[in-house]
Amino acid sequence: MWYDLLTSVFRGLVNTVLLLALAPLCEGIVRKLTARIQSRQGPPIRQAYYDILKLLGKEDIEVGESPVFQRLAAALGLASVLCIAWLIPMGVGIPFSGGDVILLVYLLALGAVVGVLAGIASGTTYSMLGVSREVMMLITLEPLLIIALLVAAVNGGSMRLEPVFSGVVFGDVTFSYAGLIMLLMVLAAFQAYVKRVPFDIAEAETEIMEGALMEYSGPKLALFKYAQMCRLVVYSGVFVALFVPWGNELMFPLGWLLFWLKVAVLVVLVTVLAASHARYRIDQAVRYFLVMVAVSFGALVLAALGY
């Protein structure tokens, strides 16, 4: 009993620390790779660490409607992402096995809600525009991931995370087409989950100047940026755990390395897609996601029928 608790705390801490340590590295890779695609030299890979440190060291300026909520939003943004690290296997098994799909969905949605909170708390015109876009994205995006998790839960017959994250999305005994459909759907929407071009609409620098984050600077911005970097890793983690979990049970360094390799592949994919696309308009994006949500519902029905 005590031993179990200790292992889960230990694993959770390892995941959190690794996430915090490696997320800026992933960001660095993204930037370097983008630069190479754009024929540029690009910043050094460790630049993202410097950026966080620099922002953390800056003066904390209080502007906007309600500074308390702004601070809360900044902290909550990073906290919610870090909590997810306790629920997904990052090469060393799931740290907190008590969680289930519903808890995971809550935490994932919280990350998006924090963006809305941040925008409302600063209360300027441009951040409100960002909020309205964020909400539209939230409403259409969240169902996709929920359905993907539900398909796995239906296939595996359990809402608990351990069975869900064991590749059961592609069927327990027989092959499930629903899982394959969901893989395609989540992959197609992946840029939006990690807020990259062409779906970084809620932040669109050239349109609404970072939207909800417009009024943030210094340490608060550092936390948002950090959360954003972690988001890329965490969503990749969820994707890997749900759709390509194989190899996790390998001996310690192998399984662990394999996990990070898969994440790195996703990061590269995200970068290439982001670098080769123009940003969509919010109505175009919403229409695109609505079609995908409809298809996903179909997949859920398929899964329930056992296909």
């Binding site: 190479r36 695609i37 754009q38 024929s39 540029r40 030299q41 290439v272 670098a275 080769s276 696309h277």
Partner: peptide
């Protein structure tokens, strides 16, 4: 079209100077 664009990018290589 996307692949063509990526190829154009990659063929150019890095052009910025270490100035």
């Amino acid at each position: 079209a996307k692949i063509k664009e990526v190829l154009i990018c990659l063929r150019a290589g890095r052009v910025t100077l270490p100035y």
